[in-house]
Nucleic acid binder design. Structure first.
Length: 478
RNA sequence: GGCGGCGUACCCAAGUGGCUAAGGGAGCAGUCUGCAAAACUGCCAUUCAGCGGUUCAAAUCCGCUCGCCGCCUCCA
């Protein structure tokens, strides 16, 4: 059964068949590095991380490229405002981005080129477009003639006439046509610039992706991804540039992820509700943030709120609690290896969900059926059944975590993170627990309950078990 | 105005032609517990925004109506 993907180009689900058998070339638009990355960047990166992981899991050899836009108006403006060098600024935010991604279990793509490493290729590409008559030089700027490209609008479903009627009147217009976009921008004094046949300048935004795709992946890509907002004009322009230059189809399957809203509102500078990844991670475990992002289909809009993250944390906790119980109550059984055939059979519904346009929400739902099943078995404590089944469940968790990237921590790692999120240092908590234990021994339940209540106010939940009292932190919320 | 999407229980959410409409959270009752917590068990949508149509059969396809959202400008 082939994997089905939703292709923006055709507006429907299609069987995924790469150009070259067994090999996938994929590209995703990365961040413009002028500030800390927000939860929307996280969604795009996590969504396509799952695509990358799952295609490899399915047996494909995947070459995945994700760029950094490290030269852009926003970077220059921000650097000027902060009084720092634009290159240092970009460098700093590339590092921050990588830290955030690592925290969210996002794997490093095969290639992560920077726009500024590909200037020569961009200049060559622009030269080709001019030579073919699709681009023109205007006083040091170079523009692409949108009207010349017959297929313009095929990705976004727009037509040129409507675009023109809706086009705003640009100030200081150098272009032949308002629809034309810049391939190369003449630099002003004190701006970063590169030498080109058209004078000192820097590349436009769209050309960098075309150049990097061509350089790292070739003329035709299997998958090109990004946020829904990039469909127009960014991806539309990439198609125009690339297909004009190569004469070949640029991308076989266009994949676009939906937005993250904050408390039902779109994240935007003007509303001041941009949520940085690191702020999100101060209040929630990375496991829960990633689980939140994967608990809805990647194309749907999702709403980030205190409640939605609380639910995700509850899910993560339920999962890791079950794993903890499996490993602590039945360690000798878990050492047994599950039969590969049985595991494969149990993975089938999960695989079916994933094959259907990477339905992570469906796959996670099935994992929680396994979680309930495992708990039921352990409650029943029928040794024969457990010996047969528990290793299978454990193996299913491990397999699924390979492509979901959640459920891949150990329960120790997860609960250690939770414990760090409380209002008290671990030592103080342990001391109070000890005091409570002594009170309990003396049957002073009033004092014992006082301590438990006090800890609860600090975000700490106690659990009395046969092996003593355990504790965990509940996450704080903004 | 143009293009696209969505509306499934109290909340989140999967399911897009045919077994009892996944899963999580919240809630209620029970087992366990000093009491809790966790886990488990049971309950929690005869129905999928509304209306009409196609079909042996629809949450799923078609039409209309209502409501919400995104893109059309830098944006994940």
């Amino acid at each position: 059964m082939p994997i089905k993907v939703f292709n923006t180009l055709t507006g429907g689900k299609e069987d995924f068949i790469p150009l070259e058998k067994g090999k996938v070339r994929m590209y995703v638009c990365g961040p413009t590095v002028y500030d800390l990355s927000h939860i929307g960047h996280a969604r795009s990166a996590v969504s396509f991380d799952v695509v990358y992981r799952y295609l490899r899991y399915s047996g494909y050899d995947v070459v995945y490229t994700r760029n950094y836009t490290d030269i852009d108006d926003k970077i220059i403006n921000r650097a000027n405002k902060d009084g720092v060098n634009w290159k240092d600024l970009a460098e700093r935010y590339i590092e921050a981005y990588n830290e955030d991604m690592a925290a969210l279990f996002v794997e490093k793509p095969t290639h992560t080129p920077r726009a500024t490493e590909t200037i020569k290729e961009m200049i060559d590409l622009i030269g080709t477009l001019i030579k073919k008559g699709y681009a023109y030089v205007m006083d040091g700027d170079v523009f692409y003639s949108v009207r010349k490209f017959v297929g313009y609008g095929k990705l976004s479903g727009k037509n040129i006439e409507e675009l023109e009627s809706g086009a705003r009147v640009a100030v200081d217009e150098n272009k032949d046509d308002p629809l034309d976009f810049a391939l190369w921008k003449k630099s002003k004094a004190n701006e970063p610039s590169w030498e080109s046949p058209w004078g000192q300048g820097r590349p436009g935004w769209h050309i960098e992706c075309s150049a990097m795709c061509l350089e790292k992946l070739g003329e035709t890509l299997d998958i090109h991804g990004g946020g829904k907002d990039l469909i127009f004009p960014h991806h539309e322009n990439e198609i125009a540039q690339s297909e004009t230059a190569t004469g070949k189809p640029f991308v076989r399957y266009w994949l676009h992820n939906g937005f993250v809203n904050i408390e039902k509102e779109k994240m935007s500078k003007s509303l001041g509700n941009i949520l940085n990844i690191r702020d999100a991670l101060k209040a929630h475990t990375p496991e829960s943030v990633r689980l939140f992002l994967l608990s809805s289909h990647y194309r749907s809009p999702i709403d980030y709120s205190g409640d939605s993250l609380k639910e995700a944390e509850a899910k993560a906790e339920r999962f890791y609690r079950t794993v903890e119980r499996m490993e602590e109550e039945w360690p000798e059984i878990l050492k047994k290896k599950a039969a590969a055939g049985v595991v494969k059979k149990r993975m089938r519904p999960i695989i079916e969900a994933m094959d259907d346009d990477f339905n992570t929400a469906g796959a996670i739902g099935i994992i929680f059926e396994e979680v309930a099943g495992a708990n039921r078995m352990m409650d029943g404590a029928k040794k024969d059944k457990l010996t047969e089944e528990l290793p299978v469940v454990r193996a299913v968790f491990k397999e699924a975590s390979k492509f979901l990237g959640v459920f891949s921590s150990t329960h120790e790692e997860y609960f250690a993170k939770r414990k760090k999120m409380t209002g008290l240092p671990a030592k103080a908590v342990e001391r109070l627990i000890k005091e409570r234990e002594e009170a309990r021994k003396k049957k002073d339940f009033k004092r014992a309950d006082e301590i438990r209540d006090e800890l609860k106010r600090q975000g700490i939940i106690l659990e009395d078990t046969d092996e003593g009292t355990k504790w965990t932190g509940t996450s704080f919320h903004f």
